[in-house]
Every structure is written in C-alpha cells, then in structure tokens.
Design a protein around this nucleic acid. Sequence first.
DNA 1: AAAATCCTTTTACAAATGTTAAATAATTAG
DNA 2: CTAATTATTTAACATTTGTAAAAGGATTTT
Lengths: 188, 188
Amino acid sequence: MTSLLQYFSKFNPLSKEAEDAIIKISTVVKIKKNQDLQPIGHTCKTIYFINKGIARIYYYKNGVDITESFSFENTIIARVESLFTGNPSRKGIQVLEDSEIIAINATQLFDLYDTYPEIERLFRKIFEKAYVDTVNRMEGIQFHTAEEQYIALIKEQPTLLQKVSLKHIASYLGITQVTLSRIRGAIR
Amino acid sequence: MTSLLQYFSKFNPLSKEAEDAIIKISTVVKIKKNQDLQPIGHTCKTIYFINKGIARIYYYKNGVDITESFSFENTIIARVESLFTGNPSRKGIQVLEDSEIIAINATQLFDLYDTYPEIERLFRKIFEKAYVDTVNRMEGIQFHTAEEQYIALIKEQPTLLQKVSLKHIASYLGITQVTLSRIRGAIR
DNA sequence: AAAATCCTTTTACAAATGTTAAATAATTAG
DNA sequence: CTAATTATTTAACATTTGTAAAAGGATTTT
C-alpha cells in the first residue's frame, strides 16, 4: 500500500489515522492479462489504484469494442459516470497485462468523508485533476487530427505502444485500425 | 441570489451561515450581448452562475473561433483547466445575449472550504456532476456522428437553436459550418 | 514444429467531411 | 428605410476516413 499512500500525499497529505482508515477498506487484487477487473453492466462501487500493470475502460458501440481510456501504474481508475450517479455502467475495466491492483471500497470511502474531512478533500482534489485531464483530452479529440493525437500519444506515453495493441489505440483515438495504419505509414 | 441558493440546495443544502458566507464573496454582473465575461489569457479565479442569459467558453485554434461549451440559465460556468491548476487559460467566456451573472470569487471560496466543510462538499458535488457530464459528452463527440449529435442537441436544448448562431454550434460539434448546413438539409 | 488464431498492413472503392467561392437570407447600423 | 454587414446555404472539387476483403506477420496453442 506504500505506493498508494505516496500517491495520496502528492494531492493532500493525510494523518496516520486517515491513512489507516483507507487501508482498512482496501484490498489488493492480482489479476491476469486480458481479464476484466469489472464487467460491463455493473454499478461501479470501487475505486482502483494500479500498483503494477495497465488497464483500460472499454465498452461496445454497435458491436465494436471501444477503448474510452487507458490507465497506467500509480494512477487511479474508476468509471465516474457510474460511481458518482449510482447508475449501472455500460463500461467495463479490463487489464492489459498481469497486474496488481488496489481496490478501494467506494461506499465505505464516501462514509469516511463525514469522519475525515481530509479524506473528502483528498478525493476532491484527485477527481478535480481527473476532471481537468478529461477536459484537456476532449479538446484534443475534438480539435486535433488523429495524426496529431497519435504523435502526441507516442511522445507522452511511449510505453503504450509496446504494451497495447493498435486496435485499442485506434478506438481510443476515435478512428479505425486502417486509418491508424495509414497514419503510421505516413509518419515513417 | 435566490436562484443560486436554490441551485445549491439541489446538491447539498447549506446552513444559513454558509449561505451568507458565499453571498458575501459573490457579486451580480450585468453584461451585454457578445461581451466577454472573461478574456482569453487570464487565470480563472471566478466561478460564474448564470441567472439570465447564455454563455459559451471559446478559444482560437489556428485562428478559427472554437466553442468548447455552452452554459444556460441556472447553471455554473468556469474554466476548470485554469481554476484548478492556476495556469492561465487559453479560453475566454463570452455571453451570447444580454445576461445577468453571479460571480463567485473562487480564491475566497476555496478559503471558505476550511471553515465550512459543507461548502467544500457542495462544490465537490457540483464539480463531480460537471465531470460526469464531460465524460458523457466526450463519449458523444468521439463515437457518434455529427448528425447524431446535432439531432440529440436540438432535442435536449431546443432553445439553443433560436439563440446561438450555427457557426458556434458547428464548432461545438467539431465540424464546419458547411457540414452542419448539409446535415440540416439532409434532415429536412 | 505445425496449426490455428490474432494482429497489422495493404488495396480498392464508397462515403463523409473539408476548402473555397459564390449566392441568398437575415440582421444590424446609420 | 436603406445600406452595410453578418449569417447561412449551395456548389464544385479535393482530401480524409470508412468499409470490406485479402495478404502478410506475429503470437499462441496443441
């Protein structure tokens, strides 16, 4: 759990009691490549922290597998559109290599907010940052070409290319595999 | 300020003292059509609530005016990618008709978080909802055609069409005016 | 090691969108 | 009210992206 506490301390340092309270509602999960951490259709009541590995949020659009986002080591992953609304999610979380994940029980976490304002503040800040990242990514999607985005992606996340299949990267960029292949060809 | 307090109460009812504390750091602004509420380049230190009117967040991409989002009566508008990071924003907020806006001083608001955990909770919930809306909109942008989005837009926000020029709607949808005209022609 | 499966690239063609310019419609300013 | 400006539509053509199918690589399974 050290990496998790270290991650937290970057947002909002916690008292020992608050740290312990979070650890008490968290479990470590080991999960094999290509397995679902959470299946499509369930209501999200867990916030995950990736200790080791890579995960993606995905869903099906007209029968086609779409990757909504990737998450890397030492980051949080959650389907917020279910977590914050209580609605079942049409999205699943899948692990793309053998991974070690910390699962934080969100129901119990939200209860802790009443006792520990510092925990509420911590997660407020964590999700504010995630919100900002999402706004910035939306700008990318909407107003940059697929080629610009692909170039930015391999610059900012070079490991992604080695670990994730191109079809997932293509759907993440909102284009087909064929178009991504063409872009790769054009760059060379 | 009644409408603002009513808006708050839907997220997290406040004590009288907390309400007063927020009112104390808020001012009412009247602003004429097409004026900037906040210009491009400034660091966002204000959260706006639209009492009356319509506003949009916009910026320039290769010299072209792009609408990132619209906001309607009885909603909050803020450039979160500046508000939460302290970075200057490349985006501006413009009003699209004569409007009445409540401006909440964000610096002072964030200070209130220490004294009033209920206020911190209120804005946590407000921005959690905004985050969810953004995630859902991103899904729309990336995986629905412009025509699907336009049809959804006029269904969900029929007033938009009467009040906003088509070029703003086009850039909001990530397409050119010409393409939007074709879509409108095809629907008829 | 061979067979089977999955991933990636390539090709040919179709469909959608962008660009530029002109024509028409609507709105604003004097 | 008219002129000027701005907004919207239409047209012709170029470019991009999608679709479907096939071929070539790579990886996994038996």
